[in-house]
Design a protein around this nucleic acid. Sequence first.
RNA 1: GGUCUCGUAGCUCAGUUGGAUAGAGCAACAGCCUUCUAAGCUGUGGGUCCCAGGUUCGAAUCCUGGCGGGAUCACCA
Length: 599
Amino acid sequence: MTKIDIAIKNAVLNAVKTLYNSQISEKQVSIQKTRKEFEGDFTVVVFPFLRFSKKSPDLTAEEIGKFLQKNMPEISEFNVIKGFLNISLSHQYWFNFFKEINSIEKYGFKKVSDKSKKIVIEFSSPNTNKPLHLGHIRNNLLGLSVSKIAEASGHKVIKVNLVNDRGIHICKSMLAWEKLAEGKTPETEKMKGDRFVGEYYVAFDKEYKKQIAELIKNGISEENAKNEAEWMREARKMLKKWEEGDKEVRNLWKRMNEWVYKGFDETYKKLGIKFDKIYYESETYLKGKDIIINALKKGIVRQKEDGTVFIDLTSEGLDEKVLLRSDGTALYMTQDIGTAIIRYEDYKFDESAYVVGNEQDYHFKVLKIVLEKLGYSWAKNISHISYGMVELPHGKMKSREGTVVDADDLIEEMIQTAMQKSEELGKSDDFTEDEKSEIFRKIALGALKYFILKVDAKKNMMFNPQESIDFNGNTGPFIQYTYVRIKSLLNKAGESGITDFSNYKSPNKAEESEISLLRVLYDFEEVIKEAEKKRNPSEIANYVYDLAKEYNRFYHEIPPVLKEKNIDVKKFRLSLSQKTALVIKDALDLLGIEVPERM
RNA sequence: GGUCUCGUAGCUCAGUUGGAUAGAGCAACAGCCUUCUAAGCUGUGGGUCCCAGGUUCGAAUCCUGGCGGGAUCACCA
């Protein structure tokens, strides 16, 4: 499709050349959408041309406007206000534009082919010692959405999860379970496995703190107390046994992880998340160790007297980074080096992106540099999709202190609210029970997902449990409602015998609200491009909100479509509605949000 | 302390390749259901865009310096 704004830009370049005999660069021409309070579709800012025209802004704009109008049949008229040249496109142009996009099944989307860029996107990456919370939800939703946007941009996407299934934190839950559980399991307690295990993690911390306090009371320094508390010593012993492959410890580890995975699967399913590949840290961390030991032999990394292996990054303006402990065991960085390499061997990706919180900006900066120093040329194609923290009104979320918003609880609460709201409005009366659960689920998750994704990913965001669960205004349900409303309209049209709307003759004239709606539809292609470039789902979210809002305005301003006498006008409006619904659906899908057919 | 990042209406957020009178939603107030779903639409009030300089015809947006919040700088992950 030829983009009209690009055509205008070229015409302006041509105008300046012809009228003022001056060659200007594309960069100097700024075409923007005309602001609502003025008449027109696109605006050309003429200030940069004044030094070539040597005329007043208004006169320059006038001359360029006349030139454009003469050379572009799509332009119907123009006006000049204070040096801004506002261009109006003919109604015919907009009708043609609509016919064009209406004939494309997935307008704005690019197809994935064999030549597509291959992108591995890692997200979620949970620890297996506690249930998922709101922070994880943001991660998961961003990962899912970024993946979908990349796919819509024609890339081959591989969604990957790296499960952090080993380490001292897991041993803490295991130890507490051994000490306190008396054989209880998620089955006997009728509890979700991840939550069950999480309770023992909290129990560990409680006892651990008690032990530290005790030691401090006996005159031991805080630092020593933290190291020497009995449970901590036992947890470390357990970790060592795990690394040695102790059968009993491994069995317990396996058993408790299974509980957690079962719980996670439920939550992922509710969120609509699936992975193409799951990596387990327990299976990849040794690779990193090998790589580092090899690099030590080659002299790329060095060893200190105390035995730690490190890499010198001072030439990059960073510090020395330790890659192996003095006892030879692996660190977070070590295992991430290993996993990155395994991932490249598995997929030979063109790009590898990590969706991880901004608290790890430094980590990923270092990871990339270290891999480059180790000689992996593909390391330059690693990127970190960094996002901000979710904050609560009373402060930070800390799982050990129980000040978290649990993912499952939150989803359940949202479903309850959706149900209540629907009953209040008297809308659920004629739904069957199956329909109800399906509809409330979609609305609840739509509300939650939209709430989180509409905020710019890189910014911290505030989550106020009381106020955040809203279904009016700039929310997911508002957008879903718009879709449902259109569906209802189309169904009614169908009942009256009009099922095919595409065979109309374009009307002579379009209403202002129709043009406004078409202008928003025009932007969709560009919005996907921008969202992909910036890896930022919020651009899609804000767009689809604008679209829904614009449709609702159209819906109210236009007299009832079904009563329209002129059959061509009627069909055009139904087509326009239908396409809007489709774009809403496609855009919401990019956010991982489903649409109900009724609500 | 170094580095990074954010600061826009009472609250939650849009708005940066520099453009016109800075926009939404929530909350408050006032209207619109004998015409297609009122989870909707329309209107009113609400702003030193953290502060001070600078660049520019033009700055919320770019630069410099402050102030304030957050993150990070581990043989934790």
